[in-house]
Nucleic acid binder design. Structure first.
Length: 280
DNA sequence: ACTCGCCTGTCG
DNA sequence: CGACAGGCGAGT
C-alpha cells in the first residue's frame, strides 16, 4: 500500500516521488479509468487512455511541485494541490473515495490519484508538449538542483513582500507557505520585507536557508501536521513538524530569543514570524 | 499587482 | 454555522 498527501511542497513531493519509483517504474499501463470530475483542469480520460495504455513507465521526475510520469514518449503530469495523494495498491482493493484517476498497472496494481479538494491536476501529454505546457513552462529555478540566488537577486526589482515572492513558482519552484516562512525565519528576514530590500548579503543567506530547510525536511520525510495530512507512500508521517520554528506556532516563544511568534495575514495568506529576530 | 473563487474536511 | 486551510489561475 502506497500513500501521500496534504500541503505537499517540494520535500513532500520529492518524498512521494522517491517512494513511488520502486513500485511503478518498469511497469506497463494496462488500463485507465477516471472520475470525470473537474480538477484544476479536467482529467481527460480519453487522452490518458490514448497516451498511457500499452506503454511502460520509464521513470518519475519532479519539476517544482509537479510529478512527471514518463510513459515511453508520452508524459503524465500530476500536481497534488492541497489534498492530493497517490496510492499504489492491489487493483482488487476498492478505490478510496475521491479517486479521480486510476492507472491499472501490469501485475494487478493500481496507481490512483486521490484528491478530495480537487485543487490538483492530472494531465496526459505528448512528450514534446511538456516544455510548452504552461504550468511547467513558467517554472523558476528548483532549489534542490539549481542555485536560487540569481532568482533572489532578481527579486530586488520588486516591491512585493518577500514571502509572496518565495511563493511565486515562476521565480523559485517548490516552496509553499510552510517552507517559505521557515526559510525566512532561518535567514532572519521579515516576511513582509519588500523584495527590493533584500540585498546581496541577505539574498545569499536566504538562498542558503531555503536549501537547508528543504534538505532537512526531505531527510525527515516531510511535514505532517497534526490535522492529518501528509503521509508518505509507506503510510509513514513525516517528522519535520517538530523542526518547525514559526509555522503554526503563533503565540508560542521563539526558540532563539523567546519573543512571541506572530501570525499576520499577508495578501490573504498567513505569515508566521518572530518579530524580534526577523528584520524588514 | 492585487482579489477572488475553486474545493472539502476540520475546528471553534 | 462560519472560519480556515492554501496552490494557482482568472479576472479586474
Amino acid at each position: 500500500m502506497l500513500w501521500s498527501t496534504t500541503v505537499p511542497e517540494l520535500p513532500e513531493v520529492e518524498t512521494v516521488r522517491r517512494s513511488l519509483i520502486p513500485g511503478v517504474v518498469g511497469r506497463r499501463v494496462d488500463a485507465v479509468s477516471c472520475s470525470g470530475a473537474r480538477l484544476r483542469l479536467p482529467v481527460d480520460g480519453d487522452a490518458w487512455r490514448r497516451l498511457a495504455v500499452g506503454r511502460r513507465i520509464d521513470g518519475l521526475d519532479r519539476r517544482g511541485k509537479y510529478l512527471v510520469l514518463r510513459l515511453d514518449g508520452a508524459v503524465g503530469v500530476m500536481h497534488l494541490g492541497m489534498s492530493g495523494r497517490i496510492a499504489v495498491a492491489p487493483s482488487t482493493e476498492p478505490a478510496p473515495k475521491h479517486t479521480h484517476l486510476e492507472l491499472t498497472l501490469e501485475g494487478d496494481l493500481a496507481l490512483r490519484f486521490i484528491d478530495p479538494r480537487r485543487f490538483g491536476l492530472a494531465v496526459a501529454l505528448d512528450g514534446d508538449e511538456l516544455e510548452r505546457f504552461p504550468p511547467i513552462a513558467g517554472l523558476g529555478s528548483d532549489p534542490l538542483t539549481d542555485d536560487v540566488l540569481p532568482a533572489l537577486l532578481r527579486a530586488r526589482r520588486s516591491r512585493v513582500a518577500i514571502r509572496n515572492l518565495l511563493l511565486d513558482q515562476r521565480l523559485i519552484a517548490g516552496l509553499g507557505n510552510i517552507y517559505a516562512n521557515e526559510a525566512l525565519y532561518r535567514a532572519r528576514v521579515h516576511p513582509a520585507a519588500p523584495g527590493r530590500r533584500i540585498g546581496p548579503q541577505r539574498a545569499r543567506r536566504l538562498a542558503g536557508a531555503i536549501r537547508t530547510v528543504l534538505v532537512e525536511a526531505l531527510r525527515t520525510g516531510g511535514t505532517t501536521l497534526r490535522d492529518g495530512g501528509f503521509l508518505d507512500p509507506a503510510g509513514e508521517a513525516g517528522s519535520f513538524v517538530v523542526c518547525l520554528a514559526v509555522y503554526g506556532r503563533s503565540g508560542e516563544p521563539c526558540r532563539r530569543c523567546g519573543a512571541t511568534i506572530v501570525r499576520r495575514s499577508l495578501n490573504g495568506r498567513s505569515a508566521f514570524f518572530c518579530p524580534r529576530c526577523q528584520r524588514v
